[in-house]
Structures are given as structure tokens and as C-alpha cells.
């Protein structure tokens, strides 16, 4: 019963928190650029407006894929709140990622095709790192279930500092922030238009956006696990991490996928492996 209530809380609170974080993100970004920026509620206005627009698609696959993307993202957040298995949560999330790519590939648009291929490269980059992070958590807690994390005496961060850094890498890619925003560029008037998102419009774009909020919450939740012993420090960790994300996002130019693959597979995986060896030895 408790689990069910938690899941419902997660499903309802997910988009609310995700939307607020997105609004905050834009505010802070504006502040960096000495602008005032949009209201905090802006993302909700955006999505509500999109939901009210005319439905317009290239073909039915886009409708299917947008919905599945949203559902998978929501289910993965639900599983997270149900204290489920980290790997399962991750794989459910991957359902959404795969469908987003497939939907983009269904349209004969050069922009969404290129975006889809690059999105695949992003998956290729972050997936192994995330799996290794989960393995690290398993080595510390003895289980892949989130529930085991809450029983720890010491925050995970103490045992897995390098894995947390690697996670940060993976998150930047997953959130498609600069320098890894090459599958959907931030600003829609660049060479790529909006990459994978180009052909999704109106209500379907809104679905994708809500799914993205869920993903943001999932990612923040993962970070939160690293300081599970103290709520105050957990909040500080999350704030610090996200602030760093925004800073990186605003100070970096977009890089190429080659740069990303090499960087992440060498540096991200390298850090993960070093940290894992440490855990195996310890």
C-alpha cells in the first residue's frame, strides 16, 4: 500500500518538480546572461499552450512514439518511487529513449534523421557509465534495489566520488545540455533546427516535454541517492550538481559526437573503473 502511495506521489510530483526545475534553469541561465528571464512557471505555460494547439503529424509513428516515450518515462519514475531495481528502472527509461529515436527516424526529414543518429551516439556514451554506477551502488549496498540505499549509514558519495563525477558526465549527456546538445540543439535556429524533436509538434511536442521532465526528476533522484543519510546534505548536493550543470551548459560550446564518445569512454569509463576497482578491493 505504501508503495502504491509513493508511486502515485512520484507520478504526480514528477512533472511538477521537473517543470519547476526547467523554469528555474531558464531563470538562472538568464541571470548568467544578465537578463531577467521568463517566469518560473514558464515551462507549464509552454506545455499547456502546446497541448492546446492543432494536432499535426507526418505519420502515425510519431504519435505512437511520443506516447510511448512519455509512458516509459513515467513508469521509470514510478518504479523509482516504488524503490525498484536500478537496472530495471534504467532499462524502462531506455524504452522511451529508443522510441524517441525511432519516431524521429520515421519522418523523411534530414534534421530529425541526423538528430536521431546523434541521439543514438548519446545513448552509446551514457549507457555503460550509468550501468557501472549502478554496479558501484550494488557493491556498496549488496543490492540493486533502491530500498537498500536507505539503509546505509554512510552516504554513497564517500565510497563512490569518482563514480559520481562519471554520473555527472552521463547526466549532462542524458539531459542534452551543452557541450552535448547535438541531438536537439538548444536554440532552434541552428543547422540542426531541433534535431530529433523537429517533427514533433503541438500536443506531441508537449508529451515529449513532459517526458523530459520525468527524466529530469529521475536523474535528480539518482543523484539524491548519493547522500541518502541526511536530507539537508542531499538537497545541497542536488543544488550544487544542478548549478554546475547549468554553469557548464552556459559556458561550453557544442562539441561533436566523436569528441563526446572519446571523452566519455576514456574519461568517464576510466573514472568509473578506477572507482570500481577500489570498491572491489575494499
Amino acid at each position: 500500500m505504501d508503495t502504491l502511495i509513493l508511486v502515485i506521489i512520484g507520478l504526480v510530483a514528477g512533472p511538477v518538480i521537473g517543470g519547476l526545475v526547467a523554469g528555474l534553469d531558464r531563470r538562472v541561465t538568464a541571470w548568467f546572461q544578465s537578463r531577467q528571464g521568463p517566469p518560473i512557471m514558464q515551462s507549464f505555460y509552454d506545455v499547456a499552450k502546446l497541448l492546446g494547439k492543432e494536432k499535426m503529424v507526418v505519420n502515425q509513428w510519431q504519435i505512437l512514439c511520443a506516447w510511448v516515450y512519455l509512458i516509459a518515462a513515467a513508469v521509470s519514475v514510478g518504479l523509482f518511487f516504488a524503490q525498484g531495481d536500478l537496472l530495471v528502472i534504467f532499462f524502462v527509461q531506455a524504452v522511451g529513449a529508443v522510441f524517441l529515436v525511432m519516431g524521429a527516424m520515421s519522418a523523411k526529414s534530414p534534421f530529425s534523421q541526423v538528430g536521431a543518429q546523434r541521439e543514438l551516439m548519446q545513448i552509446l556514451a551514457y549507457e555503460p557509465v550509468l550501468i557501472l554506477v549502478f554496479v558501484g551502488i550494488y557493491l556498496v549496498t549488496g543490492s540493486f534495489s533502491i530500498s537498500a540505499v536507505w539503509e546505509l549509514e554512510q552516504p554513497l558519495l564517500a565510497k563512490m566520488p569518482l563514480l559520481y563525477l562519471a554520473l555527472g558526465y552521463a547526466l549532462t549527456i542524458k539531459l542534452r545540455k551543452s557541450p552535448f546538445d547535438f541531438s536537439t540543439s538548444h536554440h532552434g535556429h541552428q543547422e540542426l533546427v531541433k534535431g530529433v524533436l523537429t517533427e514533433y509538434s503541438g500536443p506531441y511536442l508537449a508529451l515529449v516535454e513532459i517526458a523530459h521532465w520525468y527524466e529530469t526528476v529521475l536523474i535528480l533522484g539518482l543523484c539524491a541517492l548519493f547522500w541518502s543519510t541526511n536530507v539537508f546534505w542531499m538537497a545541497a548536493l542536488l543544488l550544487g550538481t544542478y548549478a554546475l550543470e547549468i554553469l557548464v551548459d552556459n559556458t561550453m560550446a557544442r562539441m561533436t559526437w566523436r569528441w563526446m564518445l572519446k571523452r566519455v569512454w576514456l574519461l568517464g569509463m576510466g573514472m568509473s573503473v578506477v572507482n570500481l576497482i577500489w570498491l572491489y578491493a575494499g
Binding site: V98, V101, S106, Q117, M121, I131
Partner: peptide
Amino acid sequence: SALTMVYWARWGGLLMAS
């Protein structure tokens, strides 16, 4: 596991069309 994801996803995607 990551590599597997890539080669399947793109094959599935390219079959879809109007």
C-alpha cells in the same frame, strides 16, 4: 549492452515510414 541498444534501435527506426 550499450552497443546492442544502438544497432537494434536504428534498424527498428528505419523501417517506420508514412
